[in-house]
């Protein structure tokens, strides 16, 4: 059991999200930085898709009712366990009764906490992820608050503290051209790929709204509603792009100028409000190579933690 002493302003149970119900309007949800959740899970001996906590806005304080192991990855929140620093990218033993404290993000935006055995809130429609908009999954479909108790799975026997090198964040995000890419003016396309876009405070788990010089289309045709996915970059009539993330609705109607590749979507999520990011045009072969490289990174991490 993990007891929430302080839930902060935004802290949710997330795994790798929901699949297979999108035709009913049910969104993906899940960790905004699935790579960080996977790393934290592997550090404590869990499969990559176990549920953990996504901490966005602190301060968060948690009390462990049982001994075990914890790992943090993603943003650095200056976490401490009973006052002693806990570094992202390491697994740390925890005794029953110890308090984990996370303040606010110093680097990045979203931290992930994994506990050995995982967080075992109910599985809803194939996932434990919190859907904040439809109010289900996770713990009652909401952000955690003081007094909440989270059930944990069975602990794993692990031997010693160990760390891994976390992937480097960069503001360069590779993307494929979207279906309506060619409908934008030459100038708009040049700006989209050539300029840095600022993340605005209106950004959330649904999507990151970017600020810059507005993008215009040659054709002003209305698009019929179509399916959208995390990673799709929409351009609404304001001309300012939105990168859709895990909580995006299943359908949309705005032109899709680009699609961020899956291997780089976590970089968008970890970009701080006010910071800039830039899109780098790539092709399908590069996207595949990046995905294979990320899978390889997780395999290497496994090997370094648990051997061949």
């Amino acid at each position: 059991m993990l007891e929430v002493i302080q839930g902060g302003a935004l802290c949710t149970v997330q795994d790798l999200g929901r699949q297979g119900s999108r035709h009913l309007g049910i969104g993906h949800a899940g960790a905004l930085d699935p790579l960080a959740l996977a790393i934290a899970n592997r550090l404590v001996g869990n499969p990559v898709g176990y549920a953990g906590l996504e901490i966005t806005l602190g301060p968060v304080e948690l009390c462990f009712a049982r001994a075990g192991w914890l790992a943090l990855a993603g943003a650095d929140f200056g976490a401490t366990l009973d006052g002693v620093a806990v570094w992202p990218g390491w697994r740390t033993p925890v005794r029953a009764g110890q308090h984990l404290h996370l303040g606010s993000a110093r680097i990045g935006t979203h931290a992930y906490l994994a506990v050995d055995g995982g967080i075992e809130t109910d599985m809803v429609l194939g996932s434990r992820s919190t859907d904040l908009h439809a109010h289900f999954g996770g713990l009652e479909g909401r952000s955690l608050q003081s007094g909440d108790r989270l059930p944990l799975g069975h602990p794993h026997p692990l031997l010693h503290r160990q760390g891994v090198k976390l992937p480097d964040w960069s503001p360069l995000v590779r993307a494929l051209p979207g279906p309506e890419h060619a409908e934008f003016t030459d100038a708009a396309r040049q700006r989209f790929w050539g300029e840095a876009w600022q993340v605005t405070p209106q950004s959330d788990r649904m999507g990151y709204r970017l600020h810059g010089e507005p993008l215009h289309r040659d054709a002003e045709r209305e698009l019929p509603s179509h399916g959208v996915l995390p990673g799709v970059v929409q351009v609404p009539p304001s001309g300012l792009p939105i990168v859709l993330l895990a909580d995006a609705p299943t359908t949309g109607g705005y032109p899709r100028i680009a699609v961020v590749i899956e291997a780089d979507l976590w970089k968008v999520a970890q970009t701080r409000i006010g910071a800039r990011l830039a899109f780098q045009l790539c092709d399908a072969a590069e996207a595949t190579a990046a995905r294979v490289e990320q899978t390889g990174y997780l395999r290497y991490l496994d090997w370094s933690l648990y051997g061949g």
Partner: peptide, 15 residues
């Protein structure tokens, strides 16, 4: 996964 839209269908693959 599949997402029917208006006159269109988006099909999600395991890449």
């Amino acid at each position: 996964g599949v997402i029917p839209g208006m006159n269109n269908l988006t099909v999600l693959l395991d890449p």
